[in-house]
């Protein structure tokens, strides 16, 4: 037998195939992440040019930081609002588009179009439209509603940021749901109809379970994505009014880039990473419970 058995050769090919991705992960993800961990143990005074090991001091500061606590609360609201609104709207749109109607392609195109508009352009447009005399209130005024100063109220600012983000990206989830819906075998519905199940029951008992893997995937992507929403908040509200929309990533940016507390910024980064990882792990674990089938 030669040394290069099929299995050995196969192993080698496997390593070769994953090598680019793996080396990339090492160089551009893991090593930088390790460095961020190291920075978090130091006091890095960017202005003074000093870099000094201080052990867990930044982490102690993290525990006592009231602004951080309010940032966590804002983050939780933001993520929850975003995920709930995004997934339910995506599902609603997908169900509507899945009806046997002429012209759904046009609507599908329209709902998807914001995904393609560059984020900066999108946010800029909404920033102008959400001003007190902007088009949003203009449209509302047309309906006889006196619109608020969206970006200046604690609650309305949060709602605005969520809605702007959802409308931008819901098209992606919609398409994924649409594909999943089209994969649900029609005979199942027929059978349920014969058993006397109404539309709502059919939706709950057949549709939801069958598309649960898609729900899982979209919810993971959306939650993780919601923790990374930065530029939109920076443009629309700058974390205000007060600190009502200062979410974790924005607070991180302020500390590291605006106030030059870079060591502390790194500490917040580490916290952010832990939260994202924990959430993802939790959802992945939960899939056994509520995801019907797995390949």
């Amino acid at each position: 037998m030669t040394f290069w058995t099929y299995r050995r050769r196969d192993n080698l090919v496997g390593y070769l195939f994953v090598a680019p991705a793996l080396l990339g992960s090492l160089a551009f993800v893991l090593v930088p992440l390790g460095l961020v961990g190291w920075y978090s143990l130091n006091e890095w005074n960017v202005l003074g040019g000093t870099f000094e090991f201080i052990g867990a001091e930044n982490y102690q500061r993290l525990l006592a930081d009231e602004k951080l606590r309010s940032a966590l609360v804002a983050t939780a609201w933001f993520a929850a609002g975003l995920v709930v609104l995004n997934l339910s709207l995506a599902l609603l749109l997908a169900v509507l588009l899945n009806q046997k109607l002429r012209g759904t392609t046009i609507f599908r195109t329209l709902f998807f179009s914001p995904v393609l508009v560059s984020l900066v352009a999108w946010t800029l447009v909404w920033q102008l439209m959400l001003q007190p005399e902007g088009s949003v209130n203009g449209l509302l005024g047309f309906l006889g509603v006196d619109g608020p100063n969206w970006l200046r109220g604690d609650t309305t600012a949060m709602i605005s940021v969520i809605v702007v983000q959802v409308i931008k990206n819901v098209g992606l989830n919609m398409v994924l749901f649409l594909a999943a819906l089209q994969g649900v075998p029609a005979p199942l519905y027929e059978a349920a109809k014969i058993d006397g199940a109404g539309p709502w029951t059919r939706f709950r008992r057949i549709t939801i379970p069958l598309i649960s893997p898609t729900i899982l995937l979209t919810s993971i992507i959306t939650i993780v994505g919601s923790l990374q929403v930065f530029a939109q908040i920076a443009v629309l509200t700058q974390g205000g009014p007060g600190t009502s929309t200062t979410v974790l990533i924005y607070y991180l940016y302020q500390q590291a880039f605006q106030f030059h507390h870079f060591g502390y910024g790194a500490t917040i980064s580490v916290l952010l990473f832990v939260i994202v990882a924990a959430l993802t792990l939790m959802q992945w674990r939960m899939r056994r419970k509520w995801v019907l089938h797995e390949t």
Binding site: L22, S25, L30, L33, V36, Y39, A256, V276
Partner: peptide, 22 residues
């Protein structure tokens, strides 16, 4: 190795941008 690669999915780009810039 797959898990190692997947870590990248969890990291907002703001987190590692400084070491990468360096």
């Amino acid at each position: 190795l797959f898990v190692v690669v997947l870590t990248g999915l969890l990291i907002p780009s703001e987190v590692t941008i400084v070491p990468l810039f360096q």
